[in-house]
Structures are given as structure tokens and as C-alpha cells.
Design a protein around this nucleic acid. Structure first.
Lengths: 177, 177
DNA sequence: ACATATATGGACCGATCGATCCATATATAA
DNA sequence: TTATATATGGATCGATCGGTCCATATATGT
């Protein structure tokens, strides 16, 4: 997962993967079949971890809007760090694989949708909590937040200064109010 | 340029490039030195074309805010098209090359900054035209717009429906008012 | 026309790609 | 202990990678 995260799907060589997993070539192909299957498992694990963690944070948060605010501000604050340079495996994969027809690309798109679904849940809860007007289109807001996180990740990858990424994140959040 | 645009830097093979340019291997290396140099020329040409075209549109537009609105709405409307699947070479490259230290990555980051600079110009003009409050941070708004375009491009690549991308673009633009 | 410089085609290079194969090592079941 | 099934290391495969080389073709200057 970490190898695909750092290097991307195509550029991650099987030799990189073997070294990181500390197994031999036979074991990789015996256990996963091929590189694509291994990628699918890595992406699904990443997505599972991410969605679970965010769901947990959302449930534990007294305010769904506060959860969203913290998420975007914290991400913006990653500016300049090694973590920022990695980006998000889901958005990385969506960008690299794009509209390809194979299973890997389809799974990447599905993962973006999973992020939108989580944002949708947060928006609906925020509406129930009175922080977002109930007459606003929750799905449109969720898509907007996905767009915002994807854009923020690209900004971080392109080395934007912390002051700029944080200001941009604040502007993003203003739309919810 | 089109090959790097469609396939990315690493995945674009020299053989792909030769075929698209209808030249032989010797000519490529004689004219450009190596693959990286060719990529740099392609990226700079893309950036030059893009910035020139946008600058023209901005200058020709009676309203800088109208220019921004048209740009984002038109881009959102690309949803589902082949053009949408290609994305933008600049954001594609920024995402793929990330924080690498080589010249290609540096040039990709520089290109993102060029987009932000153009947005900055549009925001400042909008402020002069009274469409955006003068006390707002023009650089922050410009960064926000770059984030927005990058995010929109990622949404388009991940196959979001037209209704969703257009609604998200509208929400993006609301922030300027 | 002739000499010189540049551009081009295509064979070729070592390195690396994802993937396969087989002999051996290890785990499991009786 | 013995028979069977699974896991592993390492050599090896054909294909492809970016890049080099040289003979030939074309352009240029006189």
C-alpha cells in the first residue's frame, strides 16, 4: 500500500513491492495473483482504513460541521510535510488511472465516490444539527467537498505555502455556512 | 505534448512519442536530447498556450468575474467527454511528479503557480470592477480558485455526473461573491 | 558540381519490466 | 514417521524501457 501510495500504480515496480513486503517473488504471485490484484487489495485497504477512521471521527464529533472543519484545516496544515508530498492514494489513483476501463481504474473511481458518500453523511448530519440550511442540496455540497479535498491535495503536492493552503481551506469551509 | 497529456510522464514511452511525432529515434534525441527535455518543452508549450489563451479571454471579457464564471462552468460541463478524461497536463504532472526534486517536477510546480498568477490577476481586476470586495485577500482567493480547478479536474477524471460537477462549480463561484 | 554539415532510419545496447517455472523448504495431517 | 499440501527462493522468460551508434540521406554554402 505504501509503495503504491508513494510511487503510483505504473511506476511501482514489483521489485519495489517485494522489497517493501519482505517476501519473494513467488510468494507475491502465489498470494495475490498479479500486480493489479495486489494494487486492488492495497487500494481497498487504504479506502477501508480511511473511511473507517473518518466515520469514527465523525461519529465521535459533537458537530458534523466541526468535523469537516477540522479535517480540512488539518489537511491544509500538512503543507510542506512529507505527508503532504504523498497525497491521498485515492485521488492519486483517480488522477493517474483516470477513465481507463480496467478494474483498477474502476476501483479508483469507486473510492472517490466513497469519499463523497462520507461527506454526504456529514452534510446531512450538519443539516439536522442546524449548522447547514436544510434546503441546500446535500449531494451538491458533498461533491463540492470532494472537489475541495482533491484540489487541496493537488495544492499540497505542488508545494503551496501553508498560509495559502490554510486560507484556501477556510474559503472552502465558508461555503458551508 | 498530447502523448504526455494522455499518458503521463513516466508511462509515455519514447516509442509512443516517436509514433505521434512521426519522426525517428535519432531525430528525437538529436532535437531534444532526452525524454525529460522533450517533456519540459511539451509542458512549457502547454502552459504557454493555456496562459496565453486565458489571458486573451480575460482581456476580451467585459467582466473578470464573468470570465472566471464562464471558465469554471464550461470546464464543469466537460463532464463525461474525452476532453474531461484527459484532464489538464499541468495538474496531471503536479499530481504525478509531486515533490520530486528533478527539473520536470519543479517545472510542473512552476506551472501551477502560473495558473494561480492568472487567477490572481482576474481577482484583482474583479475587485477593481467592484464585483469582489476590495478588502478580501486576492492571493488567498487566487489560491482557492487554483484549488478549485484542480479539484474540478480530479472530479471530471473520476467520472462525476454533469449535474454534480456543475453544481459543485456553482458553489465554488459563490465564494467570490 | 563539389565539399561540408546536419538530419534521419534502423539496428542495437544494457537495464528493467511483469510474470513463470521448478527445485527445495516448511507446514499439515495421518 | 511418513505422505501430502503449501510456501518460498532464485533462475529465467520474452517484452519493453530509455538511450547510443553508424551508415546513409538530405540540406547548405561555395
Amino acid at each position: 500500500m505504501q509503495v503504491f501510495w508513494a510511487r503510483g500504480y505504473d511506476s511501482a515496480s514489483t521489485r519495489d513491492l517485494l522489497e517493501a513486503m519482505k517476501i519473494s517473488r513467488s510468494s507475491l504471485y502465489q498470494a495475490f495473483g498479479n500486480k493489479e490484484q495486489l494494487f486492488l487489495e492495497a487500494l481497498r485497504r487504504y479506502r477501508g482504513n480511511l473511511i473507517d477512521r473518518l466515520n469514527h471521527r465523525l461519529e465521535a464529533s459533537p458537530s458534523a460541521l466541526g468535523f469537516l472543519r477540522e479535517l480540512f484545516v488539518e489537511t491544509a496544515q500538512e503543507s510542506g510535510s512529507e505527508r503532504a508530498a504523498l497525497g491521498c492514494l485515492i485521488f492519486n489513483s483517480a488522477s493517474e488511472l483516470g477513465q481507463r476501463g480496467d478494474i483498477a481504474a474502476i476501483e479508483a473511481r469507486r473510492s472517490v465516490q466513497a469519499i463523497t458518500a462520507l461527506f454526504h453523511e456529514a452534510v446531512v448530519r450538519s443539516q439536522a444539527e442546524g449548522d447547514i440550511a436544510s434546503d441546500r442540496d446535500a449531494l451538491a455540497l458533498a461533491t463540492y467537498l470532494t472537489l475541495g479535498m482533491a484540489g487541496l491535495r493537488t495544492l499540497l503536492k505542488s508545494g503551496a505555502a501553508p498560509a495559502q493552503t490554510e486560507a484556501a481551506a477556510e474559503l472552502l469551509l465558508d461555503t458551508l455556512r
